[in-house]
Design a protein around this nucleic acid. Structure first.
Lengths: 234, 234
DNA sequence: TCAACAATTATGTCGGACAATGTTTGTACG
DNA sequence: CGTACAAACATTGTCCGACATAATTGTTGA
C-alpha cells in the first residue's frame, strides 16, 4: 500500500512552528526565517532534524537557503496545504483548490492519452476499467483500482510529468483527501462514467474523452462541496 | 535575482550517483535503493549529506523512506528533470514535456482569472501589460516583466496553487529554460498577443482570453521546436 | 508447521565540530 | 565626513560518531 509518510513527527513539528512564526511575524516573500540553531534550541530538537525539515521546503521551492546568508521565503505559502491548524472548512477550501488545478491537468491528460496511447496501453486501460466496474458493482472499495486506472491514463500520455504532477498534488494534499472524508469514497457517483471514458480513450476520441473526464471531475467536486456544506452546518 | 540554487554540489553528486545506480541496476518502482551508509562510503561523503540529498527526493515524492526497512523508489523517474547527463535533444524533449503540462494549467488560469479577478487585479494586469509592451517595443529584455505579468494572472485566480505549481515547474526546469536558450528570449513572437490577452481578461471574456493564451503557448512551443531542430542539425 | 523471540539492518535523531560564505561592524586613511 | 579595507560575526554546508526506533530476517522451541 502507498503509505505516503508525511514526514516524521519531529519534522512536522518544525514545519508547524515555522508556519506559526511566519504567521505571527507576518513574514513575506524575501523575508528571512530564523536560523537553524535558533529554531533547534527553541524547539528542543537537534539541528540536523530542523535542517531536514527545512530541506523539504527547499525541495518544494518554498524557501531558498544561502550559505552565509540565511533561509528566505521564496513563495507565498498562504493557502498552502502545510497549514496545520486548519479547520475542516479551510481543508475543504484547499480540496476545492486542488481540484481546480487538477481539473485542467486531468482533462488534458486524457485528451493526449486518447491520441497517443499505443495498443498495449489502450488494452491496459480497458482492462482496468472492467476491473473497476466489477469491484464497484460488487460494492467493494474501488479506490485502489481507480487510482491504477487513472495512473494508466497518465502513463499513456507518454509524458511522465502528468502523472508526477498530479501524484505530487495528491501526496501533498493526502491528509485532506483521506483524513476528513475517510471511507466516504468521494466521487462515488462518477464511477459509472469511467466505462464510456475508457471506451472513448480506446477509440481515440479525444474530445469525447475530455468531456467525460470533465464530468467525472464535476461529480467529485460536487461531492466535495456537499461534504463541506454538511461539515459547516455541524 | 532569483538564484535558484539546484542543491549544493555534493548533494548533486549524490543524486547523480543514485541515478546511475538506478539506471545500471534497472531499479523500478518499489525497488530498494542502497542504504545511506553504503552510499556515503561509496561516494566518500558524510551520511548526513547523503540523507539530505535523498530527503529532497522524498519531498518531491520520488522515493519513500521507512525506518528499519529502507528507501524505495515511489515513482518512475524516467524523463525526470534530474538526469544530469542530458543531451541537448533530451533537454529539448523535457522542454516540450514541460510545455505540454503547463499549457492546460496556464489556459485554465487565465480562464479563471478573467472570471474571478477583482478590480484592483484587473488594473494591475492591464498596467503590467502596458509596461511589457513598452519594454518590448523598445527592444529591451522583457522577460522579467513578462514573468510578473503572468504571475499577476496566476494571483488573480484566487487559487495560489496555479502560481505555485507553474512556478515549481519553472524552477525544476530552470536549467532547461535558461541554459540552452540563454538570451534567445524564447517566444519572442508571442509578446504582441499579450495586449489582447490582457484586454480580454480585464473585460472578463474568459473564453477569448483562454484562446489567446493557447496561441501564446503555441508560439513558445514552436520557437522551442525550432531551436531544437537547429541544435540537432549541428 | 508455526509462533515467539533474538539478531540484523536501516532510517531517525542527537550533539558537536569545522569549513565556506555572506553580512555586519569597526577602523584607518584620504 | 565618508569611503575602503579588514576583521569579526552569523549562517548554512559538511562531516563524524553515537544511540534510538522500527522493520526485516533468522532462529529456536513447542
Amino acid at each position: 500500500m502507498d503509505q505516503i509518510a508525511p514526514a516524521s513527527q519531529k519534522q512536522r513539528q518544525v514545519m508547524d512552528a515555522l508556519l506559526q512564526i511566519i504567521d505571527a511575524e507576518k513574514l513575506g516573500v524575501g523575508d528571512r526565517l530564523p536560523a537553524e540553531v535558533d529554531l533547534a534550541r527553541r524547539l528542543g530538537l537537534g539541528r540536523g532534524t530542523v535542517r531536514e525539515a527545512i530541506k523539504s521546503w527547499e525541495a518544494m521551492g518554498i524557501v531558498t537557503r544561502n550559505k552565509g546568508a540565511g533561509t528566505v521565503l521564496a513563495t507565498d505559502i498562504s493557502g498552502h496545504a502545510l497549514q496545520l491548524p486548519l479547520s475542516v472548512t479551510l481543508e475543504a477550501q484547499s480540496l476545492a483548490r486542488t481540484l481546480a488545478v487538477r481539473r485542467p491537468l486531468e482533462i488534458e491528460a486524457v485528451r493526449i492519452a486518447a491520441r497517443e496511447a499505443d495498443e498495449r496501453q489502450r488494452h491496459e486501460i480497458r482492462g482496468l476499467m472492467l476491473e473497476l466496474m466489477a469491484v464497484y458493482e460488487a460494492g467493494e472499495d474501488w479506490r485502489a483500482i481507480d487510482h491504477r486506472f487513472h495512473a494508466a491514463i497518465h502513463a499513456a500520455t507518454g509524458n511522465p510529468l502528468f502523472g508526477q504532477l498530479i501524484g505530487q498534488l495528491q501526496r501533498a494534499f493526502h491528509d485532506i483527501y483521506e483524513a476528513p472524508f475517510g471511507q466516504a469514497q468521494l466521487g462515488h457517483a462518477s464511477i459509472p462514467l469511467h466505462r464510456p471514458l475508457a471506451e472513448a480513450i480506446v477509440a481515440g476520441e479525444a474530445e469525447a474523452a475530455a468531456g467525460l473526464m470533465a464530468q467525472i471531475l464535476d461529480e467529485v467536486t460536487a461531492a466535495a462541496a456537499a461534504v463541506t456544506a454538511r461539515e459547516e452546518q455541524a
